[in-house]
Amino acid sequence: MASLKELAKRPESFTGGHRLCTGCGAGTIARQALFAAGDKPVVVTSATGCLEVASTIFPFSAWNVPFFHSAFENSAASCSGIETAYRSLKKQGKIADDIRFIAFGGDGGTYDIGLQSLSGAMERRHKMLYICYNNEAYMNTGIQRSGATPRGAHTTTAPTGKVKTGKDQNRKDLTAIMAAHDIPYVGQTAVGYWNDFMTKVQKALEVDGPSFINIIQPCRLGWGYKPEDTMVLGRLAVETCIWPVYEVVNGEYKLNIKPKEKKPVTEFMKHQVRFKHLFKPENQTLLNEIQVEVDQRWAKLLRLCNEQPIA
């Protein structure tokens, strides 16, 4: 990855004046992804969702690159169609440029409603990068639970109540599902690690085939925290091993960030309103169970990455 000073000399591809919430990291992700794409032109698609809605309110678009949106569940299918058009027109000599393709989707559009379309596009080996900006719930429609929402989190469709403690189930491991597609590049990262994310975008765009990056992206409204802490929370997700930063390159797992000390999950949760109820004495068992689950997943990942536990 080029140094920030060099990157800062390049033109901005994602402008200010979009209507993402104050402190929303989706804007940062879009900017960093486009900077990482470098000098080669990119065409971007997005699923319906916060990023798409807030960045393209007619007649104001924040995208300085060709940008396409059509629906919620089909960012990958749309992108695969554009990439196919590119291959066809290029083969026929109708266009000359080398163009790359990035599809964005939130967790709702990726883990849930868009999973089939994503799986199909990856299986068909379209040369495109899919970036899931994962804020762990349907934030654009008002914080409903998704397949990415972690256990115990309060959402508006899996709320806490007199007999319920938020979402009952843990999230599915989408990054592993994507790795199971045997695509050349799969990465998982968090907002707050610009270098890791941008390096991953660069690597992903270089491979000859489809690639996928799952980046956790705190939502200040849905998670309930102060807007200035977006990057801090991204890093806490990593330091507690709730959201490990790793990559799977041609099937080989590699841990990219190994925290110096493994913080308890409560260090991540205590800053967020969605987990507030878990700190009541009667929910201590649930909290313990969540810690055990995180530990088990982390241990499994360490084995896959051939890494020793944190001392």
Binding site: G81, S88, R124
Partner: peptide, 21 residues
Amino acid sequence: VAVESEHSAMSACIGACAAGA
């Protein structure tokens, strides 16, 4: 493109047509 559903068929066609094909 042998897509994985008609929804994706139409989505991919829309993308391709918008791309200039």
